[in-house]
């Protein structure tokens, strides 16, 4: 399991290749990459992501642990950025590896659902007309009940 919380950008291609190369006997690699969306109208000037150093790493490791308990995985990678990002920037990625694709897909989906509302990150969007904290969505909380 690899967990990285960083302000710097990452290269999805290189990360995926390295992750895949470290696996043995795994027939499926699933990756998900989250990207900063532009905003309609004013457009997004920037996004600031705040996190809780210490708790963030623990929470991500606990989520990855749960995934490894529930599914048969060769490996889990989570990278999540904080700091200043702009539209089109990559915010985070997860990668999962399993013998067959069902486990890797389901585990990646599970990781994303939990990352949304159980990892201590907060996003603030800045536009020309001001700044606003991104509110959590009821559907993100509801998504956890399907697991």
């Amino acid at each position: 399991m690899t967990i990285r919380v960083q302000s710097s950008p990452f290269d999805v291609g290189a990360e995926t290749s390295d992750f895949a190369a470290a696996q043995t006997g795994m027939g499926a690699i699933v990756t998900f990459t989250g990207v900063v969306r532009d905003l309609p109208g004013d457009g997004l000037e920037r996004m600031e992501i705040e996190h809780y150093p210490g708790m963030t790493e623990k929470a991500l490791a606990a989520i990855a642990d749960q995934a490894q308990t529930r599914w048969s995985l060769g490996g889990v990678l989570i990278i999540h950025r904080y700091g200043t990002l702009r539209a089109g920037d990559q915010i985070m990625m997860v990668a999962t590896a399993s013998k067959h694709r069902a486990h890797a897909f389901e585990a990646a989906d599970f990781l994303m659902d939990y990352l949304k509302s159980r990892a201590p990150f907060w996003k603030k969007e800045y536009t020309r007309s001001g700044a606003e904290w991104v509110a959590s969505k009821d559907e993100d909380e509801a998504a956890l009940t399907r697991w």
Partner: peptide, 23 residues
């Protein structure tokens, strides 16, 4: 993560924040 009824005996650090918006 815990709730507002949680005991504080022995606690060193308490953090307050809005619902998280990761991912």
């Amino acid at each position: 993560l815990t709730d507002f009824d949680a005991p504080l005996a022995g606690a060193r650090e308490v953090a307050f924040f809005p619902p998280m918006t990761g991912g």
